[in-house]
Design a protein around this nucleic acid. Sequence first.
DNA 1: AAAAAAAAGCCGGCCATAAGGTTTTTTTAT
DNA 2: ATAAAAAAACCTTATGGCCGGCTTTTTTTT
Lengths: 201, 201
Amino acid sequence: MNLEVGLQQAKSERARAAICDATIAALAEVGYAETSLNRVASMADFSKGAVQHHFPTKEDLIAATLDTLLLRTVQSRIAEPKSVEDALLEAWQRFINTPAYRALMEVLNAARTDAALRQRISSDLVDWGKKLDQQSLARYQSVSGNAEDVVMLLNMTRSFMRGLLIQEQYGVTAATTLNYVRKWIELIAPLLKLSEQSVSR
Amino acid sequence: MNLEVGLQQAKSERARAAICDATIAALAEVGYAETSLNRVASMADFSKGAVQHHFPTKEDLIAATLDTLLLRTVQSRIAEPKSVEDALLEAWQRFINTPAYRALMEVLNAARTDAALRQRISSDLVDWGKKLDQQSLARYQSVSGNAEDVVMLLNMTRSFMRGLLIQEQYGVTAATTLNYVRKWIELIAPLLKLSEQSVSR
DNA sequence: AAAAAAAAGCCGGCCATAAGGTTTTTTTAT
DNA sequence: ATAAAAAAACCTTATGGCCGGCTTTTTTTT
């Protein structure tokens, strides 16, 4: 009767996932500095000891959370886009302008000044960047025929959207922000076209 | 003999400026969370008591520092630009890609999740945004003749550059980043032209 | 005497460790 | 093969060291 190989392992896995989810929520809501073990524990409905059992140090917790975050953003599939414009707008609405991406930015920002954390996560981030580039190449083509342009334009778009998230706070309405996104797309889209089979199953 | 109206006042003013400078450096180097009164005091070569005399609470310190930061970035004059391209590149190199701007972003990011701080600084930030918009209008014109476009394009440029600062950390070289900047300038420069008297003395 | 600066002390929250207790898995012995 | 024993994993609670922010008190300067 070993259908469920590792009842305990499964439980453990569930616990780790729940804790990482709570960490993401905390990062998005209160930022990196306030994302304490205490807070994460109470948000995940575990004791602090449980959290520390699964993730001995805070760095471990953050690194693990970042991994699930990166994985999630890469795996997020976009419904068959009709046009480049649609695809980019979707990217903003369902990929960047989300709590999860805000959590990601909190970690990135923290890593800027925390050398240990930066070292710990940098290789993951580099891999992630490469995956995103591959994804760009798979989904888009440059009208100029230059593959490098595709990667560049998509990275620029992500940069722009990240920048929007920061500006967001001071007197710029969501509608204005959306206008900026549309304008950006208007400028960029003519340089791109969708690949034939843009949906990879 | 009141030639020096407030000798003490002047000294106090100098102390405040030095403390704010130290705060900016701390924000840029170690981030918002680690910018403690202790650290600022030691960096500015004052006692903690002195810092707290001038800025009773951390919020006061941050708010004052932000003010000098905003003032400084607005006042930063750009040497008579030869072209739109030059002007935008200068904006990146001497305005955005600087420790001071990084310090500013630390405050902005902290304000996202710190309601009290956000409330405290929001009006300053809104004013700052307006000043930047005015500056954009004074320096640039849209080839379409539409003034709104100028404001929008310049704000988009700032967003994009902010986003570049974040990406900076993970495996993207400074040269690549500069390439992105150039590409963006290449895209939007044709939509803008310099105003006649772009230098307001 | 008033303002500025320095020093000292308190409070609270953070991360980390360690000592139990409970549940699951593995090993051993019959 | 199966039941008991041992080991391991999981989780809780308690504890301690540390540090940042705030307040109060003392000293220095003007």
